[in-house]
């Protein structure tokens, strides 16, 4: 039976389904499951070996887009070209580092008939790693103490205050738990080279790592919320296996965050639950996490709900999900032809 969502065309970034995966493929899987085979997925990639480019059962066509550092004009020009060929209904960006540009260009995209469902620049800044401690203090959240590091010398003060271990984090991505000053210096230089300053030194909090995937409606409420306890963590700190859990304290925490920020769009809270029962917010990521398909598996398909909201539908908040749903990530050698690699590398589309 035909419905208003037949033949939707949605563009998605974050096709890097590697050992530090972007959320794109999980978002696409969720969307395909809900909207069915008539859904057309346009992948937006940055590099030629992002696995999603070659997963043609999930991604109908991929276009390379300019790196965020090239600015909004370059992005808009490229998206205009893509839209002329694809007639996009919606774009779901999935990288922290590209959000600034997508938020800035959202009004122009809207004029082109392309919907987005994104936080404001102000909301984006509130939960920035650099501002998270101040945000927590203002709104009564537990957030580990931190130091902003602009030079390697700043590590001395952080080490004096926090001792070891402590956590050294990049401005956008990556974090290392370090146990000695040598390790701290190495982490600082590596993260500075990759993401620039400030690098953040954060107090180490011991406990169970819990993540919350949520979808805010921009009016102070969460439409959906699913919590997951990490069961297996990679050396990059990523969940390789996890299980859905339900706890009123987690629901309340995410509810308070949505209320404090009026968050619009998907987000992920990284929580450390201590033996004393405190829930420390380690990070708030301003987009869906790579494990977002677990929300669909547990009964709350957040990417599908975001899509409907972005297209103007009023979506009632989900009230329940299944605890005890387990995900186990795996690696898979996907086979493609070198001609495909040549095509995306040379022509920027496949």
């Amino acid at each position: 039976m035909a419905n208003k969502y037949d033949n939707l065309c949605i563009a998605v970034t974050g096709l890097n389904a590697n050992d530090n995966p972007g959320p794109g493929m999980a978002v696409i899987r969720s969307l395909k499951e809900y909207f069915g085979d008539s859904l057309r997925i346009v992948g937006l990639s940055y590099e030629s070996l992002e696995p999603g480019i070659y997963l043609r059962d999930y991604v109908n066509k991929t276009y390379q887009v300019p790196y965020p550092t090239e600015g909004t004009a370059a992005l808009l020009e490229r998206l205009t070209y893509i839209n002329q060929r694809e007639n996009l209904d919606l774009i779901i960006p999935n990288f922290d580092s590209e959000l600034f540009n997508f938020i800035k260009t959202a009004p122009q995209l809207q004029q082109m008939g392309i919907a987005t469902y994104l936080p404001t620049q102000q909301q984006l800044a509130l939960r920035d790693k650099v501002h998270l401690k101040d945000f927590g203090t203002k709104h009564g959240f537990y957030v580990p103490a931190d130091h902003k590091l602009y030079t390697a010398d700043d590590l001395q003060k952080a080490a004096a205050d926090f001792g070891f271990p402590m956590v050294i984090k990049g401005k956008f991505y990556e974090a290392y738990v370090v146990y000695t000053m040598d390790q701290a210096l190495k982490a600082f230089h590596q993260l500075n080279a990759t993401w620039g300053v400030p690098v953040i030194a954060q107090q180490y909090i011991k406990g169970n790592e819990i993540n919350i995937a949520a979808l805010g409606n921009g009016k102070g409420d969460n439409i959906s919320l699913v919590a997951m306890r990490k069961l297996y963590i990679t050396d990059k700190g990523k969940a390789w296996a996890g299980v859905t859990i339900k706890d009123d304290k987690l629901t309340q925490l995410a509810g308070n965050f949505a209320l404090a920020t009026n968050w619009k769009g998907g987000y992920e809270m990284e929580i450390m639950s201590t033996a004393e029962g405190h829930l420390y917010i380690l990070e708030v990521n301003p987009r869906f996490p790579a494990w977002i398909y677990l929300t669909a598996a547990a009964g709350q398909n957040q990417p599908a709900a975001l899509t409907k909201m972005a297209l103007g539908e009023v979506v009632e908040p989900y009230t329940d999900y299944q605890a005890g749903k387990l995900f186990v990530r795996y690696s898979w050698d996907h086979i493609a032809d070198i001609a495909d690699f040549q095509q995306i590398s040379a022509m920027g589309e496949l």
């Binding site: 169970n208 819990i210 997951m228 306890r229 069961l231 996890g242 299980v243 859990i245 339900k246 706890d247 639950s273 605890a323 005890g324």
Partner: peptide
Amino acid sequence: NIATSDNGFIFNPSTGDS
């Protein structure tokens, strides 16, 4: 809310402990 099975498996849905 503790989930148990006939073979002795126990799952705490609040914490994820099993």
